[in-house]
């Protein structure tokens, strides 16, 4: 396949996926309309997670801390300092990046299972910190942002983030942007190096690459996307609480990415969408709906490790990034 043909197919697949999500807003009933905003924001989180797990081969069990860094970075700014939502969003994304680099400087000395446990421990410490500073964060109970605080003026027009249509399109913009970032990174020479690190770290080092620096950069971008998702989440839904920093929020992205396809660009979006509704449906039937999370995790690891897009790619569709 020529590079030009491959580029066209990649554009068609990912552009098509984005376009489909954009058009969904005109047919979705209110309830699902709101759900899709959640899904698109969480998919950005999944994309960020996948950059580290799927493309660099570093399995993190503590990504909730980066999501929460964005959530609290933006949420606290709006609540206590009345930041403009745009400023709060940038601050939240920056908080994710900053924390990721900080954690990376320490945690990237390990790999494999030790990296999983170290990230899990750091995330647990971050979660407990949100509980410890209860006076500021209000812990589990959390904080609600007012409608007034969630609107801002841009070039003379007021943009109200509680307005469903605005919210949907901004969430879509964020997701489309994140998809574009992922494609740019993954298809770039730098992405090639990340994949090489995943495939054979020692070989990559012996090709002259400073592997630690690439890993740190991957973790940084991963944290940035996770933080951006967290910041968008609090601005769109107006609530910030400790539960977003707890262990399940580190497990969810793993589940979304595994279901959609580890190391694929489109997979995490599809995984997030399917998993979101699976959990929603299970929630209607039983209060112990989290059993779905456990069962699907087990089934994926045992029988379907490549996930949806990954399995498609393995059937002779090697062009899929």
């Amino acid at each position: 396949m020529t590079p030009a043909l491959r580029a066209r197919r990649i554009l068609l697949l990912h552009g098509g996926l984005a376009l489909l999500l954009l058009l969904c807003q005109f047919v979705l009933p209110d309830y699902h309309h709101t759900n899709f905003v959640s899904i698109m924001v969480l998919a950005v989180y999944a994309l960020g997670y996948n950059l580290l797990v799927g493309y660099t081969g570093l399995l993190s069990l503590g990504h909730a801390m980066f999501f929460a860094a964005g959530l609290y970075g933006a949420g606290m700014g709006v609540h206590y300092f009345a930041w403009n939502p745009v400023v709060a969003f940038i601050a939240g994304a920056a908080a994710g990046l900053f924390l990721a680099v900080l954690v990376g400087l320490v945690a990237l000395r390990t790999s494999g299972v030790a990296f999983m446990i170290v990230t899990m421990m750091f995330a647990q410490a971050a979660f407990l910190t949100t509980l410890y500073f209860n006076d500021v964060t209000h812990g589990d109970e959390g904080l609600t942002l007012t409608q007034a605080a969630r609107s801002f003026a841009l070039f003379g027009t007021v943009i109200d983030l509680t307005n469903p249509a605005i919210r949907y399109n901004l969430a879509w913009l964020l997701l489309a942007g994140a998809l574009a970032v992922m494609l740019l990174v993954v298809l770039s020479p730098a992405g090639r190096v990340l994949i090489a690190i995943r495939e054979n770290e020692e070989r990559t080092r012996m090709l002259g690459y400073d592997v630690r620096r690439y890993k740190l950069a991957a973790l940084g971008v991963s944290g940035l996307l996770s933080g951006a998702a967290g910041a968008a989440y609090v601005l769109f839904f107006g609530y910030v609480g400790s539960s977003f920093a707890a262990i399940p929020y580190s497990i969810y992205p793993l589940l979304w990415v595994l279901l959609g396809g580890v190391g694929t660009v489109a997979g995490p979006v599809i995984g997030t969408l399917l998993m979101f509704y699976l959990i929603e449906i299970a929630r209607d039937y039983s209060s112990s709906y989290m059993i779905v999370v456990g069962a699907i995790l087990l089934v994926l690891v045992l029988f379907f490790p490549k996930g949806i897009i990954g399995s498609w790619r393995a059937r002779g569709q090697g062009w899929i990034p």
Partner: peptide, 18 residues
């Protein structure tokens, strides 16, 4: 090792939710 960790996370939720 890594697949086992993911699997035991699954086991955790299954046992807890059961």
């Amino acid at each position: 090792p890594e697949a086992t960790i993911v699997a035991t996370i699954g086991l955790l939720y299954i046992l807890q939710q059961a």
